[in-house]
């Protein structure tokens, strides 16, 4: 059984606004296990991207981690010094961003940018680093890497650029790889290729992958474990197969039911009524109360804590037994 290489515990991120402090991520916790893919699943604005940013230390200046810990290979990233974080960025922790075009510097060749991790962390010469860059390009499936290494980002297609991003992230064999919506901007066929590549690399380099996405199908196909997020909280965790077949939180159930399967023509599409709460007006009880079919007085009064509901599964609901299909 593989071990948890990164443990996120009670992570909280606040944003400073002129009207006060808003809580974007509240007490989020999960483990990333070597050789496994954990999906952070949730709607836009649920705080999953901000969680990822908080982990890699790339939060916008108005946002800050106000409590919690992120322990990776024995070091708590939240309290670590900037120098230590910088040393870990690349060899131990890496992230793949969503938009490959803007994430790549337009004025430098891809070879230069791919070689950068090697030059920074392993102090390689530019020639040696370039050779590594070519090998990386070959590994991620870019054809004719020797000639394309001197090309510029805008000369590649979207799928190729995403491969380059992945190549840069895995260059130094990080322990944990975060992928923030890696396929959202791509065609469906390219999506499949990219995800396959990620899986190969994960197994080859024995990484733990944290996949941030809103795509249920993607989670079902690619992830081993899932942590469902809503309004800055984790509301359910567990193995994907189990959670998807037997959700223990009304929100998870609602998500699953809104995926159109076997829908007869002319009938209504199922969806969850209402919208996620504004960051400034998150209710004091359960965060899902406004849209939950099972909401009761206790839900308004007391915020449910994420607790174990079965072996390897947890949910933040007072009435999870009632959620079963």
């Amino acid at each position: 059984m593989s071990t948890a290489v990164m443990s996120v515990h009670d992570l909280t991120v606040d944003i400073e606004t002129p009207n006060g402090r808003l809580r974007a991520v509240d007490g989020v916790g999960f483990d990333a296990v070597q050789g496994e893919t954990l999906a952070l699943l949730g709607e836009s604005g649920c705080g999953k991207s901000m969680t990822a940013q908080a982990i890699v230390g790339l939060l916008d200046p108005v946002a800050s981690v106000s409590s919690g810990s992120v322990v990776l290979n024995g070091t708590d990233l939240v309290t670590a010094s900037r120098r230590k974080r910088r040393a870990m960025a690349g060899p131990e922790l890496a992230i793949v961003f969503q938009d490959a075009l803007t994430a790549l510097n337009p004025v430098y060749t891809v070879g230069t940018q791919l070689a950068e991790p090697f030059r920074i962390h392993r102090r390689m010469s530019s020639r040696a680093a370039r050779a590594e860059a070519v090998e990386l390009m070959r590994r991620v499936g870019i054809p004719h890497p020797e000639s394309r290494v001197d090309a510029y980002p805008h000369q590649f297609s979207g799928g190729m650029r995403q491969r380059l991003l992945i190549a840069m992230a895995v260059a130094l064999n990080p322990t944990v790889l975060l992928a923030d919506e890696p396929t959202t901007a791509l065609d469906v066929t390219v999506q499949a290729q990219i995800m396959a590549l990620l899986k190969e690399l994960r197994n080859e380099r024995e990484m733990a992958v944290v996949l941030i996405t809103h795509d249920l199908a993607l989670v079902a196909e690619e992830a081993d474990k899932v942590a469902v997020m809503y309004a800055g909280h984790v509301v359910e965790t567990g193995a994907v197969a189990e959670v998807f077949s037997d959700p223990q939180h009304p929100y998870t159930k609602g998500l699953l039911e809104s995926v159109p399967v076997h829908v007869a023509r002319g009938s209504d599409l199922a969806s969850i009524g209402g919208t996620p709460p504004d960051l400034a007006s998150i209710p004091s009880g359960c965060v899902y109360q406004a849209r939950c079919p099972l909401a009761r007085d206790r839900c308004v009064a007391e915020r449910p804590v994420l607790h174990q509901v079965a072996k390897g599964r947890a949910a933040a609901c007072h009435y999870s037994e009632e959620v079963s299909r």
Binding site: L58, P91, T102, N105, E116, I120, M168
Partner: peptide, 17 residues
């Protein structure tokens, strides 16, 4: 504030670089 700066930092690039 461009995304490629964020990426560079995620690769471990220091402020000077």
């Amino acid at each position: 504030s461009a995304p490629y700066v964020r990426l560079a930092r995620s690769k471990g690039a220091g402020d000077l670089r």
